[in-house]
Design a protein around this nucleic acid. Structure first.
Lengths: 248, 248
DNA sequence: TTTCATTGTGTCGATATGACGCAAAGATAA
DNA sequence: TTATCTTTGCGTCATATCGACACAATGAAA
């Protein structure tokens, strides 16, 4: 990395959400020689758009292109990277001594959240400063670097709010999915259980699902119908938000 | 301004909304010797939080403290300040020649939107590079600097989306207001007319308004009741969003 | 005193919501 | 092969809410 090609003091961090076994999971890097985890992040080249640099980070870690990715907050407090943070990284051999001053400066970071289909991420790749990268449940997060826990909280909060405005189902589920799977996703994100029959009725009323006429075999009990999203209708419905009618 | 005290390449821009005569208005600066307008903005001191620097900009232009102010987007495209932008400002005597290189560098800006009570802004103060600062209707914007029109659009879009999650009524209206005034605000933000009686019913159902037992005198026709917001109940209701019930 | 636009309140049919019941499906156990 | 048992798909019904109105009261202006 040629640090002179990067904007000093500004970074991006990606909260990459996946959905598996009825849990929201996040891709986290385990730092070298350190019992700390961190969000996948990166710096911004002087000649690249910030949004594209975030997409690059996502691509480098997951191998995935064309993924739902959106900035949600800028974290700009003075004290967010602490005084001894950089020297500690050097001491533990996480970064080169020559990079200490780079990591010591005040850093402002732009938080992005991404929604990926869990099974599509085959072998996530750790970066230079990490030894592994793993899916971790949002309900059981390890010890995190700096304010990364706050960043995740804010991302999660944003996800809840945007549930009716972003193609969250399409992004997090496989192409074909069952109604119970979709419901599980909603229940997980909202953190509450929903009535099975009312959920189905409401979802179908949006007219954004296509019945594939197929059923998922192999599961115990009755085989559920497989649906796909009607992408055009889905996109159109999201423009105004998925809510029920309502006065506003 | 001591430029060495500021973070290079990063700025804040504030979209300051007011509501007057059933129109959304924005405080805009008219640049010196130039037929261009710009959003009030500023740079970020190296030892200050970004959010506080935005609050400082707001305070400097409007004199107001404790105002609803929230970041909504980071504008980080490479080309957002064009090549000849800075030299043009020098040529027109808007900025000092010594500042040309500062304005020439790539700039990334954080957009904030503020909601202020129109009548509380007594004499907005222009900054060093502007000759006047005025309220301009969002429906009739003048020629704007760089991508400031895009920034305003994004702010407006955000405002619509957040209508049920932020104390928009409380922030934009005077302390005491009438039901028709509140409805006018909603209609203006949403860009559609609402049934008078249904609007009242829905608003009252939220149980966030307090009847002051007073009426606005002097208006032609029947004197409307004056309400205030019950701030505690309002805040509580906003936590979950103001929507009707709904499944999610 | 009359006029008239505006406010406050109520009505009513249509629709959506929330809480259920019940039969069909399909793997597993008997 | 048959019975069991959980899950899915579809439907019912009382209640709440929505959307579109009607009508009386108010208060300044004519």
């Amino acid at each position: 990395m040629q640090i002179e090609n990067y904007i000093p003091g500004l970074s991006v961090d990606c909260v990459i959400f996946g959905f598996h076994e009825n849990e929201l999971r996040i891709l986290l890097l385990k730092l070298k020689n350190l019992n700390k985890w961190a969000l996948p992040g990166g710096f911004i080249r002087k000649d690249k758009d910030v949004d594209l640099e975030a997409a690059r980070v996502l691509k480098e870690r997951t191998g995935l292109d064309d993924i739902f990715l959106q900035q949600f907050h800028l974290f700009g407090k003075v004290g967010r990277n602490k005084k001894n943070h950089a020297s500690n990284l050097v001491k533990k051999n996480v970064i080169e001594p020559s990079m200490q001053s780079w990591f010591e400066q005040r850093f402002i970071t732009v938080g992005f959240y991404a929604l990926v289909e869990y099974s599509k991420v085959k072998q996530p790749k750790p970066d230079l400063i990490s030894e592994t990268i793993e899916w971790r449940s949002i309900n059981d997060l390890p010890d995190l670097l700096l304010d990364h826990r706050d960043i995740i909280s804010k991302a999660h909060e944003t996800l809840k709010k945007e549930l009716n405005f972003q193609p969250i189902g399409q992004s997090l589920l496989a192409d074909e999915f069952t109604m119970p799977e979709l419901q599980g996703l909603y229940e997980t994100i909202l953190g509450k259980s929903l009535d099975r029959r009312n959920f189905r009725r409401k979802m179908l009323s949006y007219d954004i699902l296509k019945d594939t006429q197929k059923r998922r075999a192999g599961t115990a009990h009755k085989a559920p119908t497989l649906y796909t999203f009607d992408k055009e209708k889905y996109a159109k419905a999201l423009e105004g938000g998925l809510q029920s009618s309502g006065l506003f």
